[in-house]
Design a protein around this nucleic acid. Structure first.
Lengths: 340, 340
DNA sequence: CGGTAAATCGAAAACGTTTTCGATTTTGTT
DNA sequence: AACAAAATCGAAAACGTTTTCGATTTACCG
């Protein structure tokens, strides 16, 4: 049982394919009578336009691509949810791909999306990505691209971000306000812009409040995992047993650290105060509950899609438009881990 | 700058579109010389076949649809990851949609996928779904469907599941072995098969080990959230202060319960032993660590895609095939919350 | 060199839709 | 009744690819 086509409707009604098509799309040059007839028959036959043909004809697929570093990740899940919820409203579908923080994979995924001819691409770039030709290529082919969260400042396109530097500054200042004198920082890898910015915010806060910046207090993590949190917490105790505060790049790592400190009998926040980043759901559940920076994943997803959608529409009408960078607000959420 | 087409290659080379197409697809009736010429030009022009045209011609899109109840969910994230990792290997893309546990939405999402003409659909059904016409319709239109995790036994299609009943039986028996005499159960909503099966496993285990099944010890939760875990833990203490074990449908709820018990000074596992379900990452981090049933999300995703892929291939060749139900093994993971 | 077999090529149809533009019919006006 | 205007319709091209099948060219052999 093959799907119904315009042709079949036309033949059973004894009219032309043209008229059937126009009737269904409510063209003004079709009489009310035939419109009614066509629509009724289309309904009873459960006619659905062949998307392949429509795509070919209109050269758009009402589908966008999404590339994220990691699917199993609370923050990115929230972003995905924001994107698909918004996409649904506009009748767009979302193809999701994962770069696993690898440049090579990211390139490959973008290639896939390009050959599938999606209408636009949303991307949060991988830690391993230092070269942005693959993204510039997409833009050069007039395909809308919007970056979110992990962006590249160099690339000329719309972006949705938070002010990582400011947020990190606030987080660190909070520790200083609570009386911390020697504050460590667990940072992310060297390349990604937001791990750089968060580090800079940390450094700024120290310097502007009369604390010396000590590079040996900054630990560079690789994969931002729970286990790394445990490992570096233990290492920190050995290296500097007088540290009284840590600003940690990501909640998951912070929770690893809290676990390690709990086991060693280190009191949080009395001995060491901790502030994380992301406001992962688990942060309000762990003991002690974790102070953190709330990062609006769902909203970021929604905003990113909206920007992309606008760009798609504008290009379609050949109207001019400008790339925009939207900065979403963050919040410091104070919980037990820093509340001394 | 419009994308390159076969026609353009043909014209610059002074040959026909047919030959170009055949050269690129390595047909035997094209000379090595022309093949080389065509391929080189296609390479330098960076030719990518127009997917819309290919789709129309071949009536397949190399795209599958995925409908899950909730995107922001550790288990489903793992499934998604398993699916897209496997799909990538076979050159398939995945469109992801969310039903938010609503029947109406689930129906709508399936409609969307059908009008997009995906090659197949993977689905884990919503709690709100009691009627399966929308899925049977898909199957009736010869579109491959594979259900996973939350399935409907009635629907005739391939499925990937775990033996929820057996797993729940083992979890409950474990509590009995640890000496629990009065075991409560926090179960999921009434409709979904796996919340039924887990309940039945619980009941069986009691009955087969000389404990009376007491319906008032079974609490029916709605949205399986952390907060519900807190709420029902407190309610349980009021209703039955002599309960010494709980088998809880989902880790997230169990963690809520643990939190509530911790605050009330109830000792786990000494006063009340707890076993959850899913082996959510957080379960090994919470204090006390949570005993649970490990549910293989990633593997389930992989397996579901493989089944779907086989069915797509078989149908394409008009070969016969049978629906299969694959049952994946689960493990009881014993941690502190039940280890007395 | 003639003939056949093999190798190589291309015309054309098809997938199903959208849209332009010209043709036909109906309506309204005098 | 005649004519212009308005309403309604349909033929045809186009989107870019794949594939069938017939046509042409080349190679080979006696």
């Amino acid at each position: 049982m093959k799907p119904v086509t315009l042709k079949q409707i036309a033949e059973t009604l004894g009219i032309s394919v043209t008229t059937v098509s126009k009737a269904l799309k409510d063209y003004p040059d079709v009489s009310k009578k035939t419109k009614k007839l066509v629509r009724e028959l289309a309904d009873t036959l459960n006619y659905k336009p062949n998307a392949f043909a429509v795509n070919l004809r209109t050269s758009e697929s009402k589908t966008i691509g999404l590339v994220i570093p990691e699917v199993v990740h609370h923050f990115f899940s929230s972003v995905v949810k924001g994107i698909i919820s918004q996409a649904e409203k506009k009748g767009y579908l979302v193809i999701i791909l994962q770069s696993s923080e690898s440049y090579e994979l990211e390139k490959k995924q973008i290639d896939l999306l390009m050959s599938q001819r999606v209408d636009g691409i949303l991307i949060s770039i991988a830690n391993g990505t230092a070269n942005f030709n693959h993204i510039n290529d997409v833009i050069a082919q007039d395909k809308p691209v919007v970056m979110f969260d992990k962006i590249a400042k160099i690339v000329n396109c719309s972006k949705v971000i938070i002010d990582d530097r400011k947020a990190a500054y606030i987080a660190t200042k909070h520790l200083i306000d609570k009386g911390c004198k020697k504050i460590a920082h667990f940072r992310g890898p060297l390349l990604p812009q937001n791990s750089i910015d968060r580090f800079l915010g940390y450094k700024n806060a120290l310097e502007e409040h009369g604390l010396v910046y000590n590079p040996s207090l900054v630990y560079i993590l690789e994969d931002m995992s729970f286990d790394e949190g445990v490992f570096f917490a233990e290492k920190l105790l050995k290296d500097h047993n007088d540290v009284d505060g840590i600003f940690i790049n990501t909640d998951l790592v912070a929770i690893g650290a809290i676990n390690a400190f709990n086991k060693k009998g280190i009191k949080i926040p009395e001995d060491i105060a901790i502030v994380g980043f992301s406001n992962w759901f688990m942060s309000s559940v762990i003991s002690p509950t974790l102070s953190t920076i709330d990062q609006p994943g769902y909203n970021m997803g929604k905003t990113a899609f909206k920007l992309l959608y606008k760009e798609i529409k504008q290009r379609k009408k050949n109207k001019p438009f400008e790339y925009k960078t939207v900065e979403l607000p963050t919040d410091l959420v104070v919980r037990e881990s820093s509340n001394k």
